[in-house]
């Protein structure tokens, strides 16, 4: 029962730790307390996300228009599919973890080793998927123009699909034309040595405007969500006027300061919440690997109990639990 290796001979008396409140071992109870505090941290993030979203309730990006990519299926719009796959991988690795705990209770070392191994593989697939998701999100695919007020103008055209007019996004790269520009990158060699700026956006607003002018079927879509729950598409004249008077710079992909999907806070929260969760998964994988090797070298076999597997198991399930909430509040709702 006792997992400590050092024995003082007083374990059974109350002051020696013989008293087990709540009939749980010290380690397990402390893991539960850690989980409660970590759950509060995550709910702080998710509640802050909710706060910002309620603040911009009519302007927030629609998640299943943003996360439409699946690896190896290029150019297809498959909203949710990949995130659902990731969710399933994580739940599956939770299952192998709980099977490992169960095998530990029965003192079956080989089974524990195999189940721990599958758990680690599942965790690695999840972290890898998340890295891919980040890369796709940062890279972006259509590009957009940010206005002086910080709003995002996206571009697209109506296509008839199955007898219905559907608004389909068009990449800025497909229609922007090089217009005359006298804007050059400011380098430190051309001015005072301590001032310089990063690389200029690929297109100026003027390039995009000229391109929009020469493509009469392309329209601007704003961030505003209309009564049908879709983003508002402007008329042709309004599109040109909006871009001409308000356009400030071309944005592609996402960073912490601006993104092509909508409010900058959207990308910030995406990076922060999924990043913090991904970091948990990563540390979970590392801890699992440590325990995995401990099982192999027989540490718990000698201790005659596998409670350590149970404790990391609790952490691992907690990571899964958090993802269930992130999945709902970031991707579904």
């Amino acid at each position: 029962m006792n997992s400590t290796t050092v024995s003082t001979g007083t374990e059974e008396t109350t002051w020696g730790g013989g008293n087990r409140p709540l009939k749980a071992s010290y380690g397990k109870m402390m893991m539960w307390f850690f989980i409660v505090s970590d759950a509060l941290t995550f709910s702080g993030f998710l509640a802050a996300y909710g706060f910002s979203r309620f603040k911009f309730i009519d302007y927030w990006p629609i998640a299943d228009e943003v996360f439409t990519h699946v690896p190896f299926l290029h150019g297809q719009e498959l909203p949710m599919i990949y995130v659902a796959f990731m969710t399933f991988v994580l739940i599956m690795s939770s299952v192998t973890m709980v099977l490992a705990v169960d095998a530990g209770h029965q003192m079956k070392k080989t089974k524990v080793i195999w189940y721990m191994f599958f758990t680690i593989i599942g965790g690695a697939i999840f972290v890898g998927s998340q890295a891919w998701e980040w890369a796709t999100f940062i890279q972006g695919d259509y590009g957009a123009v940010q206005t002086k007020g910080g709003n995002i103008l996206q571009f697209g055209t109506y296509k008839t699909i199955g007898g219905e007019d559907v608004f389909k996004r068009v990449s800025v790269e497909e229609f922007a034309v090089a217009a005359y520009t006298d804007r050059t990158q400011h380098e430190s060699k051309t001015g005072v040595w301590f001032t310089s700026e990063g690389s200029l956006p690929t297109y100026t607003v003027n390039d995009v405007y000229k391109g929009l002018e020469s493509n009469p079927n392309i329209l601007v879509r704003t961030q505003t969500i209309n009564a049908e729950g879709e983003k508002t598409v402007l008329s042709r004249e309004e599109s040109l006027r909006q871009l001409k008077t308000n356009g400030k710079r071309y944005v592609k992909g996402a960073n912490l300061e601006a993104n092509e999907y909508g409010a900058p806070l959207f990308a910030d929260f995406f990076f922060f919440i999924t990043g913090f969760h991904g970091f948990h998964v990563l540390s979970g994988v590392v801890i699992n690997i440590i325990i995995f090797f401990n099982v192999i070298i027989g540490t718990y076999e000698r201790r005659k109990n596998y409670e350590m597997v149970e404790k990391v198991g609790l952490y691992w399930h907690f990571v899964d639990l958090v993802w269930v909430f992130v999945f709902t509040f970031f991707y579904l709702v």
Binding site: A39, L40, S43, G44, A47, G50, F51, S52, K55, D58
Partner: peptide
């Protein structure tokens, strides 16, 4: 309890700012 409390306050405030 703590999560409900926090969520209530923040969402209420977010709605007000909106």
């Amino acid at each position: 309890f703590l999560i409900c409390y926090l969520v209530f306050i923040l969402l209420q405030e977010g709605g007000y700012i909106e």
